[in-house]
Simulated scan of single mutants.
Amino acid sequence: MSQRRVVTGRSQEPRQRFAEELRTLRTGSGTSLRQLGERLGWDWSLFGKMEKGETLGSPEVVQALDTHYGTPGLLLALWELAAGDHTQFRERYRRYMALEAKAVSLWHFAVSVLPGLFQTPGYAREVLAAGGLKEKELEQQVKARMGRRELLEGKDAPPFRTILSEAVLRTPLRDVGEWRGQLEYLVGVAERPNVTVQVVLQSAGLHGLLGVDVWYLLLPEGRTVAYTENGYWGQLIEDAGPVVRLQKTYDAVRDLALTPVESRKFILRMLEEKACDPST
């Protein structure tokens, strides 16, 4: 078993340090990229791109590498440092936004927060403020987020499906009026012909998308890319193998969710409960 090495000052450039460690471990084990791909079940080209710093890969891939090399937690820690590099995050997010703008179809899973495409200004403001944005930047970000909603409007709007974890709808805004307005807006958006909203209840149990929001974009040339994010990092995934695996996981979660009709009724019940709540 390889000895776990200390993360040194080289980690001041997290992405480069991560790629360097991947190359060192593989070459030290005498394994080619093709052999690594065969042993771990991923396309070998993904590992080549990770070693060049072109992509970070997903946590699933990095955990598999940690196990393979006998370095429990080392690569995942370096990956987290690289994923937390805000410069790289902005670059990946900008690329994602460019791809989203030209997508011909979108799928989404929300683990804790409504997708930006569905947010009212009040919801967006409270969510962004909770993330630490100051007033000037906060208002700029709210305005930008409202601009994104235009993607789902008009006759040429792409099909969009979202699966909302029940937790998303059980986490209200502090302002009761704003929260009611958000739920009403959600019901209205769900009635658009190009939009499908489903809810997966907590009683459905554990599934493969717990802990992370995922976006899937079908692009004009026919390929699909995925973008995963939580409150601290985002990762654009363009390699076919990981995207296909994520899509299969998404399909399994969709099978657990309420139908669109049942989901709409669930949201309407929440609105009724809020209207009858004596505290409001």
Rank of each mutant, 00 (worst) to 15 (best):
A240K: 06
T71S: 02
M146Y: 01
R26C: 05
W179A: 01
L128A: 11
P14D: 08
L128S: 07
S203H: 00
L169M: 04
E137R: 14
W233V: 08
S165H: 14
L173I: 09
V113W: 00
Q202M: 10
Y123M: 02
T87A: 08
M50S: 13
R90Q: 11
K134F: 03
L152E: 11
H207G: 08
Q35E: 13
E80Q: 15
Q141G: 04
L218K: 06
G73R: 00
M50Y: 11
R245V: 07
L56D: 05
G241W: 02
E150K: 13
M97D: 06
S29M: 03
A101I: 06
R10S: 03
G28Y: 06
T224V: 15
W79Y: 10
P59M: 08
S29C: 00
Q140V: 15
V168C: 13
F160W: 07
Q202T: 10
P242N: 15
G222I: 02
L106W: 07
K134D: 11
A204M: 10
R17V: 01
T171G: 03
Y227Q: 05
E137Y: 13
P242S: 11
T67L: 08
R180W: 08
R90V: 10
Q3E: 12
G84D: 09
S112Q: 07
G211T: 04
F266A: 01
V187G: 10
T31Q: 03
E272Y: 08
E273F: 14
A252K: 15
L65T: 01
A190I: 03
L151T: 05
E20M: 10
V261T: 09
L258H: 02
L56H: 04
Q202E: 10
P172E: 15
A124D: 09
R254L: 02
L117I: 05
L74Y: 04
A77D: 15
K265A: 08
E273L: 14
A275F: 10
R125M: 05
E273G: 09
L152N: 11
W79I: 04
P115L: 12
E91G: 01
R192I: 05
P159W: 02
G208Y: 02
